[in-house]
Design a protein around this nucleic acid. Structure first.
Length: 314
DNA sequence: TTTGTCGTAAACAAAC
DNA sequence: GGTTTGTTTACGACAA
């Protein structure tokens, strides 16, 4: 990593899920994906996960309607929104995971090694803004909250001079990837100055790609975001995918299997994420025979699929 | 060398 | 009036 190690921000789930997908990016093509179909047995779920699974709401139209700036119902059918992924990930908040490429095995009770968190993150400001917005429940943030997210997740910016804030605003204004929304004065979130900012859906793939490249460049030969304490089913070089046994990995469910996946209709492939310790697993339907590269394309190109699906529905 | 991207600084106006 | 927000311009570093 160019700038040393960083503590990965405690992405909420959608980004963590993105991270999970990012771990696949350097995979060689045409790798057989071991079908991993299970739900983990209830006994293998952590109490938190079990509670989360019980209390989580299904993928809501509301979430879909909230992602694109306009909260009206006209956006409800816009499935390019990743809120559903965000929501399902909320079933189990993920812990900040070390992004170091080597994660020493710790003895029980041993404190984790200090992480050099004060070095400058490798992410561009566009990526930072993107992550901040995507990590927000409403998928929209005022500038002030973007600052707050950056500062709280990247300690480097706590002590950095104020110029970076200018850069954030500069990026928001200049980049086509972000859209300014007038605050709805009736909303509680609208208290404050300025507008809200959201991610333009048509530029989300590019932003994802930017993030992916950052991870590919700065975190090679590792599971990047979710480096496991246990051997990761995805080997560091992604040369194979080990069939996972629930009793072997004490899986914590991240996504609720009973949820209706908005992408499961119209032949879409349903993706599930499971977390085992510090590693997330992408779980495909047992009948799927996809190489990892295809999975990546599927994930990065969800919007294209959605567009195609919408056309087919006409 | 050219081009595009990114980060940074600065100036300015408008809104709060 | 001070602060924050948003826009714009300019410049340098860097990589392709």
């Amino acid at each position: 990593m160019k700038n040393g190690s960083h503590t990965l921000p405690p992405f909420s789930s959608s980004l963590a899920a993105l991270g999970g997908s990012l771990t696949l990016t350097s995979s060689p093509p045409s790798l057989p994906l071991s079908p991993v179909s299970f739900p983990p047995s209830p006994t293998s779920l952590s109490p938190a996960a079990a509670e989360s699974a019980r209390s989580s709401s299904p993928v809501s139209d509301l979430a879909a309607s909230q992602c694109l700036g306009q909260g009206d119902t006209s956006d409800q059918d816009d499935l390019t929104c990743l809120s559903w992924l965000h929501q399902r990930g909320d079933l189990l908040p993920l812990q900040p995971l070390s992004k170091v490429t080597t994660l020493p095995q710790r003895q029980p009770g041993q404190l984790p090694p200090p992480v050099a968190a004060s070095s400058k993150p490798p992410y561009s400001f566009s990526s930072l803004i993107f992550m901040a917005i995507e990590d927000s429940p409403q998928k929209r943030l005022p500038v002030k909250d973007i600052y707050g997210w950056v500062v709280s997740n990247f300690p480097y910016y706590k002590t950095a001079t104020g110029g970076w804030r200018n850069s954030v605003r500069h990026n928001l204004s200049l980049s086509k990837s972000f859209r300014r929304i007038q605050r709805d004065k009736s909303q509680l979130q609208s208290v404050g100055k300025g507008s809200l900012w959201c991610v333009c859906p048509e530029y989300r793939p590019a932003l994802l790609e930017g993030l992916r490249k950052t991870h590919s460049y700065h975190g090679t030969s590792s599971c990047l975001i979710n480096k496991p304490a246990l051997p990761c089913p995805l080997t560091p070089d992604h040369e194979e995918l080990v069939t996972m046994e629930p009793h072997e990995y004490q899986l914590h469910e991240v996504s609720e299997d009973t949820e209706k996946d908005p992408l499961s209709d119209s032949g879409y492939i349903e993706l599930h994420y499971y977390e085992s310790d510090q590693c997330q697993y992408l779980v495909l339907p047992s009948e799927s025979e996809l190489d990892l590269e295809t999975v990546e394309i599927l994930q990065l190109d969800v919007e294209a699929q959605e567009a195609a699906g919408s056309l087919l529905d006409l």
